[in-house]
């Protein structure tokens, strides 16, 4: 049978030649071969006859109209309208909005929560110091020092209604005597808990002005100097040790990573950073109000500035919360609306 033995490549060439799909070079090569190859010519004739037969097939008339029924196939809206019509976008945006509003509210609550890093970083106000100390005692220092600091803080509480300075000075002697006696008893051993030795709160106002110095001094002295040295009262030791005590506290500040306890002690004196001379100024003439007033004014200014800053930040946080609270119901409404639309669709 003609053409049956033709290789596939020749069949492809003949087929493309019939359709006029060969490039000039291929067509010229094939025509050269056809001129000298009778079986190839016969195969070409067979293929041409076959193609002609198939092309004789009549075109058909559609048995019916394939027009679409407008009642069944509704008019197509633009893609963005269809997208919104299904409610998917509304649901998605509603869910995202609700999530965002929850995040906003939680963030605002966390930022406004007490004890955050931001609040710790704020300048401590005199009113807030005792509570700060009471809540966050630093465990890094020696135990007796911590207790003394706490005692100092609790003693600082009554400063809102301070007793007469003269009384305080008088009581200081008594308190220090008692303090010294107790210290003497425990001097050979570990330092006695300062809270136990602490005089009643009202009597410590002057002691609170320089509580750390004798304590800091006593922390190192009782062991080395023995009973006699330990019996030296805080009042007597303050003037002489104040200059040494300040560096000691500065050293403690450097050792302690959290400055809460340190600032607590320093702030009531009004001289947190200065060393000996300033301490002296606040300690020795502690009975004179004029020296304290400027420091308090400075502290008040700092406190006011801190409060203002805190209020500003709080107001920012409130805005966040308000935004979240407003956004939440809107988002939920969007979500519900989109869900209803999706169900309808």
């Amino acid at each position: 049978m003609t053409g049956n033995t033709l290789p596939d490549r020749d069949l492809e060439l003949l087929s493309a030649y019939i359709d006029g799909e060969l490039d000039d070079r291929s067509r010229a090569d094939l025509e050269r071969r056809l001129a000298g190859d009778a079986p190839l010519r016969d195969a070409l004739a067979d293929l041409r006859a076959t193609v002609a037969l198939v092309r004789e097939l009549p075109r058909l008339k559609a048995p019916r109209s394939f027009a679409l029924d407008p009642a069944v196939h509704k008019r197509r809206a633009p893609w963005w309208k269809r997208l919104f019509a299904t409610g998917t976008v509304l649901q998605l945006s509603g869910a995202l909005g609700a999530a965002a509003s929850v995040v906003l509210i939680v963030a605002a609550l966390l930022l406004n929560a007490p004890g955050t890093e931001e609040e710790r970083a704020l300048p401590p106000t005199p009113e807030s110091q005792p509570t700060q100390v009471g809540f966050a005692p630093e465990p890094t220092g020696p135990p007796d020092t911590e207790l003394r600091l706490q005692a100092t803080a609790t003693q600082a509480m009554p400063t809102a209604s301070p007793p007469p300075v003269a009384d305080m000075a008088l009581e200081e002697d008594d308190g220090m005597a008692a303090f010294g006696g107790e210290v003497a008893g425990d001097a050979a051993g570990s330092a006695p808990p300062a809270a136990e030795m602490a005089p009643p709160p009202g009597t410590i106002e002057t002691f609170d002005a320089a509580p750390a110095e004798p304590l800091a001094a006593g922390q190192s002295q009782p062991a080395s100097e023995g009973e006699g040295a330990a019996q030296e009262t805080a009042a007597n030791s303050i003037p002489s040790d104040a200059e040494e005590a300040a560096p000691l506290f500065q050293a403690e500040q450097a050792e302690q990573p959290a400055p809460a306890a340190t600032t607590i002690i320093a702030m009531p004196t009004g001289t947190a950073t200065p060393a000996g001379p300033s301490l002296k100024g606040t300690l020795a003439p502690s009975a004179t109000a004029p020296d304290v007033a400027p420091d308090e004014a400075t502290a008040r200014d700092i406190a006011a500035a801190g409060e203002a800053q805190a209020q500003n930040e709080e107001s920012d946080h409130r805005w966040l919360a308000a935004l979240g609270i407003v956004l939440l119901p809107v988002s939920l409404a969007l979500f519900v609306f989109g869900r209803k639309k999706a169900r309808r669709a």
């Binding site: 049978m1 596939d8 069949l11 492809e12 003949l14 087929s15 493309a16 799909e21 293929l47 037969l53």
Partner: peptide
């Protein structure tokens, strides 16, 4: 396309015979 077409035509030729 070319190869399928040529094979189809060859089969059609044989079928029509």
């Amino acid at each position: 396309v070319k190869s399928r077409l040529s094979r189809a035509r060859a089969r059609m030729r044989d079928c029509l015979r």
